[in-house]
Nucleic acid binder design. Sequence first.
DNA 1: GCGTATAACTTATCAGCGTTAAGTTATGGT
DNA 2: ACCATAACTTAACGCTGATAAGTTATACGC
Lengths: 211, 211
Amino acid sequence: MTTASDAKGRPHRAPRGEGDRLRVELLDAAERLLAEKGSIEAVSVRAVATAVGVTPPSIYLHFEDKDELFFEVCRRGFLDFGAGLAAALEGVEDPVEQVRALGRAYVRFGLERPEQYRILFGQKVAIPGSIETPDELPGMQAFQVLVDAIERGVEAGAFRDGDPVTMAIGLWATTHGYVTLTHFEEDAPDELPIGGALEDVLDQAIHGILA
Amino acid sequence: MTTASDAKGRPHRAPRGEGDRLRVELLDAAERLLAEKGSIEAVSVRAVATAVGVTPPSIYLHFEDKDELFFEVCRRGFLDFGAGLAAALEGVEDPVEQVRALGRAYVRFGLERPEQYRILFGQKVAIPGSIETPDELPGMQAFQVLVDAIERGVEAGAFRDGDPVTMAIGLWATTHGYVTLTHFEEDAPDELPIGGALEDVLDQAIHGILA
DNA sequence: GCGTATAACTTATCAGCGTTAAGTTATGGT
DNA sequence: ACCATAACTTAACGCTGATAAGTTATACGC
């Protein structure tokens, strides 16, 4: 077992210029293990390393530390999320309905992928020093999509005349809170009637910013 | 140092029936250290033990494990939370203003004690098996306070004619989401303009359920 | 006031964690 | 064919949460 292949026959050493191959494999493994275990603390650096057939210190050739590794995992996950939101806008013309569609898409993502959502939004992820502007923060573009939709609604006279960013914060807070509470409900011993209230909750939130 | 007193001269062994004295001291120390360090992971069992002048294994005579210790810390904190909500209602007659006051009190707690809030509402600590009904879940009574306030508002004709529980869910989701997002903002390198939007967000949410 | 059961706490130790320093080996340009 | 070095390993550090086994002080029955 001193020679270089794991169970899948993978040679341990990548060719010269392609050290990043291991980097990607580490991210894939970390993402998978994270979905399995459900929390960052439950996924050890050692587990990630052995999952791809490599020793733990190799990770530190590609990531500053464990935090950076999992931050990167989350950043990748946010790309899916953003894509889902963007897709929700397609074919919807009315700005109010666009906002409603975004809310539904947001909640759908949160409920269909609870583990991933919890990691992205519900858990404290250390932010590496390499990130300096808010634009680089994962999820920020997704927020901007919402702000833009509201802005269109304001210009169209559908929403009240106010700061779109503030309205977006309120809506984001509502949907995020709804998702989190539904997660909590699922973990709770008996259930609150939260799960079925989405449409009403969205109605209320949107009604709150109508003109 | 084999004999039994720490820096404060505290004898290490409690009298016969009063083993719970150490339990309380451990909870106090854990709460203080949690506030200092800002996260559970940063507070080791060893640190809690030595803070009260005791060895680490002593903790396990009073708590199942580290999770239970810190869940208990938060459960105590929740008594303050409930009291804060109740206090927020005092002197406020108008149901709409009562709901607004509850929202403010909720957010205030979430922002002043972020770690405690994260543990209680963020489902970061496993719920001990000893809890069996929702009523025992921390925060459930607080939710009922909100439902009752809304119900009064509905009866007074101030809020729309609908299910108070559904409206409460929407408002709870909004405040909870607002708190969570503000936590996220504080961890971020630069800031979103979330922190100062509370009053507007509350306005929107309440406006959404007005008659 | 003595004996003794046991509550209250300690000693010693475990396996696992994230991380680092130093060593090794395969690779590709010259 | 050489050799600089990218890519990875070996070995180890100090820390963590946790447990099993040992010790000591206390309070109650007699």
